[in-house]
Nucleic acid binder design. Structure first.
Lengths: 183, 183
DNA sequence: GACACGGGAGAACGAACGTTCTCCCGTGGG
DNA sequence: CCCACGGGAGAACGTTCGTTCTCCCGTGTC
């Protein structure tokens, strides 16, 4: 197995386990077992667990925002694009594997202990907010809408994560529609 | 030191440390050191760490919701009471000790491993939502507003926790005002 | 005064886990 | 064929931490 595929399999297993069971309750040995990558190789690729965690969050960040952007881009109408964000959230919440927002969860676990993880969470949330801002600008709506839309989305992620329901996405979409059409 | 005060001091220390540094990174020995309650007593009062965690979340839930309700009750106008929720959040976010929502953080740390903690988080969030619902009903507003208001509040808590800023409260309050005055 | 006892200090124990080390094998080059 | 070497399996090591145990002291009771 060459280095690139070993790295990818390690990250696949790490993501599945870290996201599904939490970071601290998954040991490096669990990742070895799930990925088939030996401990020796794991430590060559990621000299410490924290670096594996960072790589997991980093890769997931790129993919998460990419998938959201691809979904939204299918919509032509600029205002509908904003609504599509909440449609996408609803689909995500309905996924069998959904267990809340990976970054909010990671922040709860490690935010107080690891500055690097805390920084990654901040960067991810800021990037999401900036993306919403770009959609708002694209629809020629006042920039002041960005904050509220972002809060609705974050609230929906938290609430869906805790309750396991997709309803928060529908509620958030409805509220977003209402905010977009006010005066 | 009698049993009641030992219990209270243990819970005081547990709350300070669990909330400030995360649950998993605080050991029983840290709590002994911070509370002055010996390990022997600690384990008489709480036969396992998980029970101390549950007692911490339980006591904090009662106090948190009580303080919110007391703050809101000072307002007479039913609609202003809803806005007052966000004023209270803003004060909370500005507190020096503020480190995000204790329940969201606990869920990120333990939600996947402890059903009891996950249940407490769900119950706390449901109680908060129900409280918002009672304010909405008191203002004779449509019940459909409860969900969006709740999501704004949750989003503000998460975002303030991650960024350390009080701004999310102001944004959420503004959005709430807007939702209340539509049509 | 003798003694039972609740409690404090902190050592001890055992498990979990991050990280490293040992041993061995298969392979490719000389 | 020999050998160097990259890598796998998993034992080993050291630390952390939840939990329990030991030892001792002060107090209240007869």
């Amino acid at each position: 197995m060459d280095t690139a595929t070993a790295r990818e399999q390690a990250l696949d297993a790490a993501e599945r386990l870290f996201y599904g069971r939490g970071i601290q309750s998954v040991g490096m040995d669990d990742i070895r077992g799930a990925s088939g990558v030996s401990l020796k190789r794991l430590y060559q690729l990621f000299p410490a667990k924290e670096q594996l965690v960072e790589a997991y969050l980093e890769r997931r960040d790129v993919r998460w925002r990419g998938e959201l952007a691809a979904y939204v881009a299918r919509e032509q109408d600029p205002k509908q694009r904003i609504i599509a964000v909440f449609d996408w959230l609803q689909e995500w919440f309905g996924d069998e594997e959904f267990r809340g927002c990976a970054w909010i969860n990671a922040y709860g676990e490690l935010g107080a202990r690891s500055d690097r993880v805390a920084g990654q969470v901040r960067a991810h949330k800021q990037a999401f907010r900036d993306y919403l801002g770009s959609l708002v600008a694209g629809a020629e709506l006042p920039d002041a809408l960005t904050g509220p839309l972002h809060l609705l989305a974050e609230g929906a992620m938290v609430t869906a994560g805790v309750t396991g329901s997709t309803r928060p996405a529908a509620e958030a979409r409805q509220a977003a529609r209402s905010l977009l059409t006010v005066r």
